[in-house]
Write a protein that binds this DNA or RNA. Structure first.
Lengths: 196, 196, 196, 196
DNA sequence: TATGAATGAGAATTCATTCAT
DNA sequence: TATGAATGAATTCTCATTCAT
């Protein structure tokens, strides 16, 4: 979608550097240098440093989303789909530690513009509604949907962070994914709240 | 512990402003102004802006810890203690949204110095060991302890964020605490992983 | 004289924008855009932004001069010619407010190159000499010729500015021209300095 | 009124440089250097380069006004006062060529903020009303007051420019003032418009 | 001629930190 | 200790100009 090669190079360099040094310690001059272009070139593609950030953040979020939606689409029972999505995201995060951590870093801090947050919310709306549907159909506990999503997110993040921190191999990530999605599912499916 | 009133005023102002505008958008001049002191005074107490940040971060972390350890100490069965700690932290976070969010903001980003992170890890070592003990005694699932802690943290954060976002009343927070700690416990106690 | 249509479009756009936003707030990119050509094209016709300015300034000055010299040439007594010239310039300025104000703007400031100023002085030499002749023949007061010209200019400018500011109609400008040239003439013809 | 010596130095340097090189060719770094202060110091006193310009412009305008109003106040007949004011301004302009030319330069161009223009208009309101009164009492021709003022201004400027250009001595300026105010007066007093 | 992406020197402004009082 | 004016390195962004196509 982004043909201009210099633009791509800038985005890539930005992700690299933002993730490594943080948004504020990264200068536009440095991004340009790493991308192999002149300082002014950055501003040909991104009116301001913040616009670059916005675009990069959106890109990452969409990359994760693409992962969830890519062929073959998750299919089967609600449970199977739920676990598959969880697994895909975990794998994606483990395989893209820089992007993942940049994402976390940017979620806190108020650098990303409101407009982008809204765009992203829009992107994920389908998933949100799918979760809500699951609740209505009794497949998931009846927590406030937002809280439920927060918990799912929180869990996922914790597991990804763990995988990154201990630099797990692909194989290990597969295992963690299995256990972790299994647990999460039991945790959030209604029967689990009424054991015995 | 911090007798000089100007130092306290500076710390308070710093928390306020860091939480509201972020570390990078907060100028030392502004902190001083909000604290009602001269710009230079800040540097009488904190050699650099980052030292102020470190101290403030440590303060908040210790405040949360104090909450966990304050009299009457959590007591009773492992389960009771576990739930009590979870509840106390949830309440503290809900009651101190600014501090809590500042904490999250600072966890990502590389502002806080390594030294401080180590100090904090040290502070919480006891808790860490208590969890590990719980695992050894079969009270908690046998995940890698670090992952377990990450998951507990993730859950707690999700719930606190939710309470803050929807501005829950004290009563509502009490309820959420009850349900949430109950769920977390079932989730992490070994029997929950072998339902039926 | 300027056949290439893109060159003309650039000059026109430059006048428009220099007059509206000032030389410094006008970017070459903007001029090109308004002229409907590519940024680089400007530099095909004008080596530098300042050369464009020079040419535009010269153009305007010559347009005013052309107005003075156009057929039917001012004729009759010295007084009649003097008044006719004054009237023509006043009308031209009122009809071309943008060009007129750009002219004023550029007279101060050191943007226009010395070479152009000299060229213009040359263009107007004839008028200058005609005024001098008038003085020698006792038709005009014996002020230093330069001062005399400055005063004439000052008067003319004041009246044009007034016409522009109050957006006078053609008819009103005609009237003002009549009165104003009458006054100026009395003011500068020798008898006026010795009334009674 | 402006005690801080560095502020004064900055204003002085700004006038010097703006007049010599123009507002746009003068960098804040250069102003600071000429004032013998650090680059940042300029912004301690003037939030932006334009604020410095505003203040400098206002200063100059007020200096001219002070000249008009200083003791001994112009007194005597309307004619005497009129000529005295004209003379004082001419002398001030001749004695302060840089300030005078900077004034002209800034009047054109849209750098000076509207607010400052209004402040100045306010400052000179008294003079404006005095002129209007003169018209009502039949001491001055019944032109639209604004046009009348424009003409007076235009005349004054022309004469000052002349004095500066030919670097007239104080004595010569005195003479020019005498002649010039005499002429202007005859020109603008009602009888002069109906000679014979 | 015409294009417009790319360039990079240059400029205004910010702000942590210092230091004389 | 406390002050706050002064510092100047660092940073984002602008824009005239170039040049490969």
């Amino acid at each position: 979608m982004d043909y201009p090669p210099k633009k791509q190079a800038l985005q890539k360099a930005a992700i690299e550097l933002f993730a490594k040094d943080g948004f504020w310690h990264t200068t536009t001059a440095n991004i340009a240098k790493h991308a192999g272009v002149a300082t002014g070139t950055l501003f040909t593609y991104f009116p301001t440093k913040n616009d670059l950030l916005d675009e990069v953040y959106l890109m990452i979020k969409r990359e994760a989303l693409t992962e969830v939606q890519r062929e073959p689409k998750p299919h089967g029972s609600f449970e199977a789909v739920f676990k598959e999505i969880h697994t895909r995201l975990l794998k994606w995060g483990s395989a893209n530690p820089k992007k993942f951590q940049l994402m976390l870093q940017l979620r806190q801090g108020n650098q990303v513009s409101q407009r982008i947050h809204e765009t992203i919310e829009d992107d994920w709306k389908e998933s949100y509604e799918w979760i809500m549907l699951g609740q209505q159909e009794g497949k998931l506990v009846k927590f406030p949907t937002n809280l439920l999503l927060s918990i799912i997110h929180g869990h996922l993040e914790a597991v990804i962070q763990h995988s990154i921190k201990y630099n797990l191999s692909k194989k290990e990530v597969d295992e963690v994914a299995k256990i972790s999605s299994e647990i999460l599912w039991r945790y959030l499916s209604p029967q689990s709240t009424r054991p015995q």
